[in-house]
Nucleic acid binder design. Sequence first.
DNA 1: ATGTAAGTCAAACGTTCGTTTCAATCGAAT
DNA 2: ATTCGATTGAAACGAACGTTTGACTTACAT
Lengths: 211, 211
Amino acid sequence: MALPDTRTKILDAAERLFAEHGYRGTSVRAVTDLAGANLAAVSYHFGSKAELLAAVARRVIEPITAAQCARLDEVLARTPDPPVAELVEAFAGPLFDEMPAGKESGARTSRLIVTILSDPAEEARGWTGPDEDTVRERYLAAFAHALPGLAPQELMFRMRGILAVTAVDRVEVYQQPSPGCVSPVAGEAARQWAITFLTAAMSAPPTRARQ
Amino acid sequence: MALPDTRTKILDAAERLFAEHGYRGTSVRAVTDLAGANLAAVSYHFGSKAELLAAVARRVIEPITAAQCARLDEVLARTPDPPVAELVEAFAGPLFDEMPAGKESGARTSRLIVTILSDPAEEARGWTGPDEDTVRERYLAAFAHALPGLAPQELMFRMRGILAVTAVDRVEVYQQPSPGCVSPVAGEAARQWAITFLTAAMSAPPTRARQ
DNA sequence: ATGTAAGTCAAACGTTCGTTTCAATCGAAT
DNA sequence: ATTCGATTGAAACGAACGTTTGACTTACAT
């Protein structure tokens, strides 16, 4: 097996450090030290720290988006009217499964996504491509079909809820459990709980206007 | 009306800037400039930037915790066996209502909470007091009573889901809506949607072990 | 062997950061 | 009027940051 080149080693190190300490909490020097590379290698290979973050984010998000797309194809090939539960599983499942770097525990990937999405730094935004928008639009249409009578805005709210639940759960897996409380369980159990939780939530009848 | 003193002006400015740019994205100079105070005033009144964050967090969280506690008292006084919907409303409601500084739009408060909770900076943690733990334990017991048969760990997962949904929704209210998608709606509608979403999710039957 | 482009390296650049210092100022008790 | 603690002010501290520079090394086509 060939040694990874400097560019890949930097991407691996940055993915790990961004996930653990956030964009602003990670210095370029920390990345190059962990990667065993020279400080100037980041500028040389990526141009700037912000572009390094974009490269890391793209590498992580891409296979997730692809899996969401593929699973929706499978579901729609089976039936033109998929139930909510199957759509939830197809959309949320890849957020638990994927492990783009292919090396370590999958929790770090989700942690990275959350860290990036919730980072107030401007550099942490604007790296999304057209693929993410396409997948979201397709799921939006599928959910709208499975949930007639739900206002588009409330449907958007619920879609964001899916991301919120899968994301914030993984955040706390990474943090130390607070004293005296049941520690979160990683892996397959959390995935099943999330599907249960989100399927029930997405299937809720539309909110009635206040009487 | 008396002018606010320097300490309060700094707290107000810091609350706003921490909410918008996060802990690491906010410099002490930016806080004192916005507050119209001297740079050294932060060290003098709070000791350090980290302790300033803790003071801001405490001021924001305190009335929310108090409201959650009071509403649970009301619900339990009405019936010893409150339904899930009432518990969800009592717990999640204050996260939408409260506006501790009493001055501007409530969305910023939630934005601050999310920013703090999801901030990878170590300084952003460790400011929680015993009150938050007490309230969580009380709701945990109430939900456990209303949802017999649910494993404690899955219940913890669902409690985190409540925070996730209320929090991340408010995050995106603050961000600009992505192009071509329905923009999130603030205020009362989001509150009602969240109650609907979370009540259905919390009421879901326990997840069966995989067959 | 020679030339060329890509990649790596140590060192330094200028800026911004959190914090500290110490003198100046204020308000109230003496 | 004077004293004294509390507060504010301008200036500077050392450290860490992202980025750039220019020489050096490597690999390969000529």
